[in-house]
């Protein structure tokens, strides 16, 4: 029986970058609570010191729109814009769908490892590496002990037979010959 019932959920994604930012906002709100209680304790005479809210209001009195304030405003608007963009950004796709009936997904590193090891098994290959591993393209770099073109062809056919059709990512081969 084939696993035809698909989960209908989207591709696996990493936790969106908005999550740590949201946690920092939550921490900021907890800090606000602590500050408000500290001020209450100070004003009621339960603790010594001066009210932070009062000091903040006093510090802002008489402020003019000088260069430092303008620079601060530009920085504030910039940070705000970055936060808005972060809040909209989706989580990074972590896995590539395999071309099978099952709901099977491979990470790019898994595909790269399989491709690297497949290339490594070809005769004439001295060493392999994957300098670029992306969701669209994975480059396998091969160092050949003899005629680089022939070895590259053999590596390509081995990859085509084993890994190339596994996901939608293109697997390219780069060859180098061992310097003599």
């Amino acid at each position: 029986m084939s696993a035809r019932r698909r989960s209908h959920q989207g591709p696996p994604r990493a936790r969106p970058v908005v999550v740590p930012v949201a946690l920092m906002v939550a921490l900021l709100l907890v800090g606000l609570m602590v500050g408000a209680f500290r001020d209450l304790a100070v004003v009621q005479g339960w603790a010594t010191g001066t009210s932070w809210a009062g000091r903040l209001v006093d510090a802002l009195d008489g402020l003019t729109a000088g260069p430092a304030v303008v620079a601060g405003a530009v920085a504030l608007a910039w940070v705000g814009l970055v936060i808005v963009l972060v809040s909209l950004a989706p989580g990074r796709r972590t896995h590539l769908r395999a071309s099978t009936d099952a709901d099977l997904w491979f990470s790019t590193r898994a595909v790269a490892a399989l491709a690297e090891r497949t290339a490594d098994r070809v005769a004439g290959v001295v060493s392999t590496d994957t300098p670029r591993v992306g969701t669209r393209r994975i480059i396998v770099e091969v160092v050949a002990s003899r005629d680089a073109e022939t070895v590259a062809e053999q590596v390509r056919s081995a990859l085509d037979a084993q890994v190339a059709g596994l996901t939608g990512a293109t697997i390219a081969v780069r060859t180098k010959e061992v310097p003599r």
Partner: peptide, 15 residues
């Protein structure tokens, strides 16, 4: 988070 960002952008633009 988006609301906080918009408040910061608005504050910066107001200044």
């Amino acid at each position: 988070t988006a609301l906080l960002g918009l408040v910061l952008v608005g504050g910066g633009l107001l200044v």
